[in-house]
Computed example of a mutant assay.
Amino acid sequence: MSAAPPSTTTTPPGPGRVRPGIARALAALPLAALALTGCQTHATSPSEARAEALENAGAVTGGDGGPGTAGRTADEAGGADAPVDCEKAKCIALTFDAGPGKDTPELLDILKKEKVRATFFLLGKNHVLKYPETVRRLAAEGHEVGNHTWTHQRLDGLGKDAIRDELGRTQDAIAEITGQRPTLMRPPQGRTDEEVTAVCEELGLSQVLWSTTAKDYATTDSALIEKRTLDQAGRDGIILLHDIYDGTVPAVPGIIAELKKRGYTFVTVPELLHPARPVPGTVYRP
């Protein structure tokens, strides 16, 4: 899980189960407090990252950055390899944490049918190791594979060696399966600090937070998950869901259909930032 309150448990609860009192604890904590408590690092929004990249490109070329740097529009998005131009398209990123799980193949079937690419922040122990074929499929089908630590410990407050172990073991496990090391990570509960940032920079990992959470770890009501997601969705947003809970995957088709109807183009997190490239250590949050 990503948006859960502080806990002594180091792994997320199993699919369909809710920890006692989790909803009450979370209700008392606003998203900003959850996401950046103890974090002294400036968060960069996708639009800020794009603007800076375009400005730098213009300075280098003496113009608008040259042909082809803007990427594709929403009308060109289906099946193309070039990134979407989120300066023109109404972009939103769908992200899933704490998997893969037993329902992830069903989710991948949905995403394939809808021609939507998402970003998955994977847990190492009991997830990446348990479902290597699903991890391989994620990468093969064009989804962005990110790091969500080894055992889901909160990283803030840990020493650098422990942070490095949590992130490094998952980096190694994913690389062994897919042949590539992730460049993105999501800190459990969104908690980060200067030491987390330093280790992420060392390991080549950018930190990705979110703007929309359905709190799907606290309910199995798919209609409620869909409503919460749609109520919070906005341009350049990053949606946080979990593919390990029973109510989440059934909510995804309705979320995709409605957001497409509203004119959104679904992108991966790197596409949302394009033409900027994620900078290791940097915190990105809409």
Rank of each mutant, 00 (worst) to 15 (best):
P13C: 02
V135F: 05
K125P: 00
D97F: 01
V128D: 08
A98P: 00
I255G: 04
V267Y: 05
D216H: 05
A140H: 04
V269C: 05
L241S: 03
P188A: 05
G66V: 04
L167V: 09
T73V: 01
A98H: 09
L29K: 11
G234Y: 00
T229A: 11
R24M: 08
I239H: 04
A4Y: 08
K261R: 15
P187H: 04
G79M: 05
D216K: 03
F121I: 03
D231I: 01
I239G: 02
F266G: 03
L241Q: 14
N56D: 11
T95K: 05
H274V: 00
G179Q: 09
K260G: 06
D81Y: 06
D161A: 14
P182S: 10
K115Y: 00
G38S: 11
P132E: 09
D156W: 00
T151A: 15
A233H: 04
R186T: 07
A276R: 07
E48F: 03
K112Y: 00
Y264V: 01
R235P: 07
S211E: 06
P105V: 06
G68P: 10
H242T: 13
A27D: 13
H143I: 06
K260F: 04
P270N: 09
L94G: 03
I177F: 01
A276P: 12
L129W: 00
T95S: 13
A51L: 12
T178Y: 04
I244D: 03
I255A: 03
A77C: 07
Y284S: 03
G159R: 13
V60M: 11
A49N: 04
Q180W: 00
